[in-house]
Structure formats: C-alpha cells, structure tokens
Simulated assay, not measured.
Amino acid sequence: MGADTMDEKHETTHEGGDVILVADGVTRTFGGLKAVDVDHFEIPRGKITALIGPNGAGKTTFFNLLTGFDKPDEGSWTFNGQSLSGVPPYKVARRGMVRTFQLTKVLSRLTVIENMRLGATGQKGERFLPSVLRFLWQGQEDANTERAMDLLRRFKLDAKKDDFAGSLSGGQRKLLEMARALMVDPELIMLDEPMAGVNPALKQSLLGHVKSLRDEGRTVLFVEHDMDMVRDISDWVVVMAQGKIVSQGTPDAVMSDPAVIDAYLGAHHDAELTFDMEAQIEAEAEQEIAAETEEKH
C-alpha cells in the first residue's frame, strides 16, 4: 500500500487492523494562524506510529490538543471509543493514554525514586485524612516502590534512584520520563521528540525501549525529526505540514512521496533548472535589489 495524500478520503489510515485513537475535524488557531487543521487521524493499535513534519508543522500543538493540555477551536477525538473532548490531562492519563514532553518535566528537586512514585495513580496517602494513618497506605506505597524499582532497572537507572532528578543528563531524564509514564501501565504512550538532546550512546538504548513497548502490546505515537530512526522503528508514518496531514503510509512509501519531499524541501525543488527559468530568477533578483536600493535613497 502506498502513501496516502490529504486529497483522498480514507476509512482508515493504515493497512487494516484495529485503531486505538481517532480524531476528526480538529483545528486550533493562534492569532489568525491555523496551527492545526486535521480532517482525520488514526493510530493503529499495538503499532509504532511516527508523526513527522518540518518545524512549525503543528505536531506538538496537536499532541497538546489530544492529551488535554490545550483546547481546540473545534473537533472531536476518541480513545478506545470514548470521547476525550474536554477531558483534563490527568484524567486522560488515568484512562491509559500518557505522554512525555520535548522538554522533560522531571521534578529536579525530588529524587529519581520519588519522581517514579509520583507517577502511580490512585494513591491512598494522597488524601488528607488517610495521609496521617500510615498503616492505610504503607502497603500500597511499598508495592509502588517495588514496581518503580523494576522499571528503573529496566531503564538502567536503578543506580541513580537516590540521586536528585536534576543531576541527570538530558538522555537520562528522557529515560526517567518514559519509565515514570509506565507507572500507570498505559495502553498508548505519546513521545514528543524522545531523541532530542540525547547523546548517541543513549539513543540506541532509547530506541530499544521504544521497540520493547510495542513488543509488550502497547501502542506508541512519537514525534521525531531523525528520519533514520523513523524508518528503523516505525510501522506507520503520518506527515504534517502547515497544520494538515499531507501524507501517511509505511515508512518506505512516505519517504518517497512527493508531497512529503515538498513539505520538507519546498515544491519543485527537484525540477530541472532550464535557461528560461534561470533568466527569470535572475531578473526577479535584480528587481528586488533595485527596489531595495531605491528605498534607501
């Protein structure tokens, strides 16, 4: 199946199978600029989907809308068939849809293990009256700590458990945020540029962890600019440009789609430069220079 462009109507955006999230008619405008204008969007269940596009395409804004961190002008979306329109972020997470951020949100003045414990939901000790009666929540906290340590060992952060999160490197913070997200045992994990600012030594580790999430039966949606990574781990790729979905398909099909190439490099970038075109460009440049000179005088 080849890549699909935005001019076509689709019942699904992938090669068959179940979908976990569906969005329709989602728009968001800032000061007259339509940052997001998505007609239809789906995420296949149990797969890794990459959301790619040039800077300013609206990818992070779309993430924020889907997870309740921002409100759209219009549109609707569902997760496991349930509407998420107007649902606040903490309730979105409780339903099994969690996200990480391009700039990590670890709590720097808490230790690594304390950051992990905060990721657990439904903690009895968080309520005022039970908080003073330790015997009511000690068992639950012990279980949360055990789960947190299992995850820290998986992400090779167990040796850092008592270190302040602020002392971690950028890559280690990414790992911590991913591990903390798993404390709620989510079905869908949304990663916003997980490789940004990560040194090469940790990139392969992060790649392996993303793949392992799919192997466990979880669904992954991630934003990324590294096309080698996208091709390596993605099952499905969706391309945004100027707020719209311009293409979607398998990694190989999308990478060769003219709509994608144009989105990144500009239309007609690969057209042969004829003599007439060259003369026209030169004439236009001379006109601009003459106009600028005239303005100065």
Rank of each mutant, 00 (worst) to 15 (best):
F63S: 06
S76G: 03
L65Y: 10
T145M: 05
A35G: 07
I48M: 09
L129H: 10
G58Y: 04
A57I: 07
E42C: 02
F62Q: 00
I113S: 00
F30R: 06
D39H: 09
R28Q: 12
I20L: 09
G56W: 11
L21S: 01
P72T: 03
K124R: 15
P130Q: 05
G31H: 11
T78S: 13
N115Y: 07
R127E: 15
M149Q: 06
W137A: 06
Q123G: 09
P130E: 09
R109E: 14
P72R: 01
S85P: 00
S85C: 10
R134F: 12
D150N: 09
R94C: 11
L84I: 07
R153H: 15
R95D: 05
R147K: 15
W77M: 05
T121R: 11
L103E: 14
L103M: 10
V87K: 07
S131D: 10
K91P: 04
L84R: 01
I43H: 01
R45S: 11
A93F: 12
G119E: 12
E74D: 08
Q102E: 12
A148M: 04
D70F: 06
S76M: 03
T104K: 06
D142T: 07
T111C: 05
S76H: 07
G25P: 01
S85F: 11
F30L: 14
Q140G: 08
G31Q: 13
T104G: 05
S83Q: 05
K59A: 06
M116F: 12
A143Y: 03
L129F: 15
R147A: 14
T104C: 11
T121L: 15
G119L: 11
R99Y: 09
G58N: 05
N115K: 10
I43W: 00
I52V: 15
P54V: 10
A120V: 12
G25S: 07
S131P: 06
K47D: 02
G53K: 03
W77S: 00
E146Y: 04
F128G: 05
P130D: 08
K91M: 12
P72D: 07
L110W: 04
F41N: 00
L133N: 02
D142E: 13
H40G: 02
D70M: 13
T49V: 11
D39V: 01
S76Y: 03
S131R: 13
G32F: 13
T61R: 06
L33F: 14
P89I: 09
G81H: 10
G31T: 08
E141L: 12
S83D: 14
G32L: 13
W77Y: 08
A148W: 02
S83N: 12
G122W: 12
G53P: 04
F62R: 00
I48Q: 04
K34M: 12
Q123P: 04
R28F: 14
E141M: 12
T111Q: 08
R134S: 13
G25K: 03
M149D: 01
T67F: 15
V26H: 04
L51W: 04
T29G: 08
S108A: 15
D39C: 01
N64V: 08
G68A: 10
L136K: 03
G53S: 10
F41T: 00
T67K: 13
A148E: 02
T67W: 14
F101K: 10
